[in-house]
Write a protein that binds this DNA or RNA. Structure first.
Length: 851
DNA sequence: ATCATAACGCTTTTT
DNA sequence: GCGTTATGAT
């Protein structure tokens, strides 16, 4: 037994002893790891080692339980023990086994820890790192996304809410189709009520925990005609999901919350089960998710939320920054720890980012700092157009590559996926390997969704939506009319469409198509039988064949169909992946769950040496040595709908902050004076965010927005600090060429503006006979100072068999040149990097002929 | 019923 | 510029 004084000393020593395990962390990080009990708000800035803290915190929980954060002393502790521990705390010497025994206080079992993240990727990473640190015990930690945790809970108990536990999950696309159908059946105009926006209303209603009938009643009471109509769609929408035994993304959380609220036994079960609850990316939670998390944590209230209010970028889907801003009010007496030391970026990058985010009002206030060096200034390149912009990025990347950087050190970030095209092309023609993350995702492809729809119908024949998707795909002679009448009957009798077509003969209206329908239901029955006996992967192969889907693609045999076929085969990889991971009894339902919540944002493997292109949103949580943020223009970033909307603007600024803080060493921003987007050209001024970066952190090149006209027409040097080093090739021109060196578009049709190369290759001008690419001018001309009409893009002429040196790829020989449009495709065998196919116009800028 | 073409509209971000 | 959808022809 210890006296009170000794107990206090013991607790301090215990804490210090435990802290030794985390000596690598900085003091604030340690605090966060050791504060195990009670509500904790962890404000973790970008690159502050948030995940590390999370992992170590869990490790602490499992190893020492409450040891580091409580005033309790076991009765068996002796003064000798105290001395031992104090000595260890100071010197690190002592029997580790005994020390651990002394420090430990009710270690948490893995299954009592719930760690929730937003993306599958984050959850996977968390699991991996926990496994690496804690071994197999980590398997039992509930580390998952909101959605998968909820599905797990619902599968167990949703029947208490009257749903079947074999529910299917609708993704946004499915939901949208249902809304469209509802609108049609309710005779509503989908221009007056855009399905997307209707879905938004439904989603917000759910976020406010309002069920369809209540919402309708409320809207009727308010007398708002439009809202009432929308509420009616909500009612109908929900009815259809119910009939299909389906839940949408919001329902998954909503019903979990309802289940916990309504069923005391379920609530108590989880509240007692989860001793520690951790929520990552708390700034991205919406109301529903807050309710869920706080309810689950309601037992022990060991509720740790981690987030960064400055990185909240999902307001559009209901995330409310309020959750993080008001956490302290909701949990009086909670502890707040700020992680403000940044381990990722250089000073220039960090301070520029700080300067930008400082313009936001609704924030907790936080200034990141770093011990890292100044690094290089950020760079803004003002391009002439989107093409020039892309070429600039490509050139920079080639340059870095030639200096020894890896491709994968580079990331290109843009505001919207539509911007990726030009960049993709620039990479292609310059021989830069790249990967696009996001965009049309694998599981969003029509052919993949078709195959998944087959699986979904086999899993749940009441899934009318999926059924109608595949009933005539591939074509089976079951037309729209037949489907429509079957749907009507189904609705009338309150049964599923499948049961109607399965008994088609009983309905005179369907008599004519009964044969065709029977063929289809037989197919399903046959597959269903097969499913019972075959393992999932083999079954899937049968599915591809017996449905006729594979055959359909094979016979068409266009380029697209080839890739489609590959895609549906690729689904087999997913199945195998599932079979490997799902240790206990893999089921079709289990697989469908997994892919319903899966996006292929998750499979960006960092080992592949590729430049990575993605939206700024997708980049959250990632880091790269070199980052290009493109399209930094008013109207794009910030987007038009943010201009004039202070709230939206702050969100855009946060997005900007996220994008900028991805960069470790170099950060390039680019904008274009003129850009074609969505088929329209527009001239945008550089983004206000750029103006918010102090000049001491930013250097500029290209042409500024204001002197666009003068430099275009007169070629007067627009700024002394003009672009100076186009990868060595354009380094010495002091004046301005009319065309940017990066421009890849056909040149103006005036002889003075045409380079010899373009004249040879240009669309209207066939190359002169007698040496296809015979020089018309000597080597690349360097513009005279102030020179106006030089042809900077002109290059020497290359021909098959030439030995060349490429600035990034080194020495090589031209294998072939193939004319293509206004350009040519060259195939070059490089000594070191293998054979590459490049577009000549781009490549020429980086190549010299070896004589 | 199915294919082809035209017209149309729509463009953030995603679990 | 894209993809989707509505319409008409086979």
């Amino acid at each position: 037994m210890l006296d009170h004084q000794q107990e206090l000393r013991f607790c301090k020593a215990r804490r210090d002893a435990i802290a030794r395990d985390f000596y690598r962390l900085n003091p604030e990080q340690q605090k966060a790891v050791l504060a195990t009990e009670g509500p904790l708000l962890l404000l973790a800035g970008a690159g502050s080692g948030k995940t590390t803290v999370l992992i170590n915190r869990i490790a602490n929980l499992m190893k020492y339980g409450r040891g580091s954060d409580c005033a309790e002393v076991p009765e068996w502790v002796t003064p000798d023990d105290l001395a031992l521990l104090e000595n260890y705390a100071q010197t690190g010497e002592g029997d580790p086994f005994r020390i651990e025994q002394l420090c430990r206080l009710e270690p948490a079992a893995p299954w009592t820890i719930l760690a929730i993240t937003f993306t599958n990727k984050a959850a996977g990473e968390l699991k991996d790192r926990l496994s690496a640190m804690l071994g197999p015990a980590a398997e039992d930690i509930w580390a998952s996304t909101f959605h998968s945790a909820c599905v797990r809970i619902l599968r167990r108990d949703i029947e208490k809410l009257g749903f079947s536990s074999s529910f299917t999950i609708y993704d946004t696309d499915d939901s949208l189709r249902v809304v469209k159908d509802c609108l049609k059946d309710l005779d509503m105009d989908d221009k007056q009520f855009p399905p997307r926006s209707v879905l938004g209303y439904i989603s917000r209603a759910k976020d406010a925990l309002k069920l369809a009938p209540d919402y309708l009643a409320e809207c009727e009471k308010s007398g708002d005609y439009r809202l009432t109509k929308i509420a009616k769609v909500y009612v109908e929408y929900q009815k259809r999901l119910w009939d299909a035994n389906a839940l949408d993304f919001d329902d998954i959380i909503l019903h979990t919350v309802r289940l916990l609220q309504q069923c005391e036994d379920v609530r108590t079960y989880y509240q007692e089960k989860f001793r520690y609850v951790l929520i990552d990316e708390y700034q991205d939670t919406n109301n529903l998710q807050y309710l869920l998390a706080s309810t689950l944590a309601g037992g022990y209230e060991n509720f740790c939320v981690v987030g960064d209010d400055d990185q909240s970028i999902y307001r559009f889907r209901g995330a409310t920054i309020e959750n993080i801003l008001s956490f302290e009010n909701q949990y009086k007496g909670c502890r707040v720890i700020r992680l403000e030391e940044n381990y990722r970026s250089t000073k220039h990058i960090l301070e520029a980012s700080n300067a930008v985010i400082r313009n936001n009002r609704g924030r907790k206030g936080k200034e990141l700092w770093t011990k890292a060096g100044e690094g290089e200034k950020l760079h803004l390149y003002s391009a002439m157009n989107e093409n020039d912009e892309a070429q600039y990025v490509a050139t920079r990347i080639l340059e870095h590559y030639s200096q020894g950087r890896k491709w994968k050190d580079h990331a290109i970030l843009y505001r919207m996926n539509a911007q990726s095209n030009q960049l993709e092309n620039a990479c292609k023609r310059n021989g830069i390997p790249y990967r696009i993350i996001g965009g049309t995702r694998f599981f969003d492809r029509a052919e993949v969704k078709d195959m998944v729809a087959y699986l979904a119908v086999l899993n749940n024949t009441e899934d009318d939506l999926r059924l109608t998707r595949i009933i005539n795909n591939p074509p089976r002679g079951i037309g729209a009319k037949t489907i429509e009448t079957a749907t009507e009957i189904a609705r009338r009798d309150g049964v599923s469409i499948f049961s109607v077509i399965d008994n088609a003969r009983m309905y005179p209206e369907l008599d004519r198509s009964a044969g065709k329908l029977a063929q289809f239901t037989n197919l399903i029955a046959e597959l269903s039988a097969l499913l019972q006996v075959l393992p999932l992967d083999q079954f899937y192969e049968e599915l591809m064949i017996r449905t006729g889907y594979a055959t359909m693609l094979e016979t068409k045999n266009t380029v697209e169909d080839r890739t489609r076929l590959e895609n549906i085969r690729e689904l087999l990889t997913s199945i195998n992946g599932y079979l490997e991971n799902a240790g206990d009894e893999p089921t079709l339902a289990g697989f469908l769950d997994e892919i319903a919540l899966y996006t292929d944002l998750d499979n960006h493997d960092p080992d592949q040496d590729c430049v990575v292109m993605m939206t700024m949103h997708s980049a959250k949580g990632l880091e790269f040595p070199v980052v290009f943020v493109v399209g930094v223009e008013e109207g794009i970033f910030p987007g038009t709908r943010a201009i004039g909307e202070p709230e939206e603007m702050e969100e855009e600024r946060r997005l900007c902050y996220v994008a900028m803080t991805r960069a470790k060493e170099r950060l390039f921003l680019t904008c274009a004076n003129q850009r074609m987007l969505f088929g329209r050209t527009s001239a945008n001024r550089p983004s206000r965010f750029v103006e918010e970066i102090p000049n001491e952190h930013l250097e500029r090149s290209g042409r500024s927005f204001l002197d666009r006209s003068s430099s275009w027409e007169g070629g007067i040097p627009s700024r002394s600090s003009g672009y100076e080093g186009g990868f060595g090739s354009y380094g010495s021109y002091g004046g301005y060429t009319a065309r940017s060196p990066y421009d890849q578009r056909p040149e103006p049709r005036s002889a003075e503006y045409q380079s010899s190369f373009v004249r040879a290759m240009g669309t209207g001008n066939p190359p002169p006979s007698g040496g296809a690419y015979a020089p018309q001018r000597p080597k690349r001309t360097v513009a005279p100072a102030g020179g106006v009409k030089s042809a900077a893009a002109a290059g020497p002429d290359f021909k098959k068999g030439d030995m060349i040196r490429h600035k990034a790829f080194g020495q090589g020989m031209i294998l072939s040149i193939q004319k293509m449009g206004g350009d040519a495709l060259v195939e070059i065998a490089f000594d070191n990097v293998g054979t590459k196919r490049l577009m000549l116009k781009s490549a020429a800028a980086h190549m010299t002929k070896l004589s």
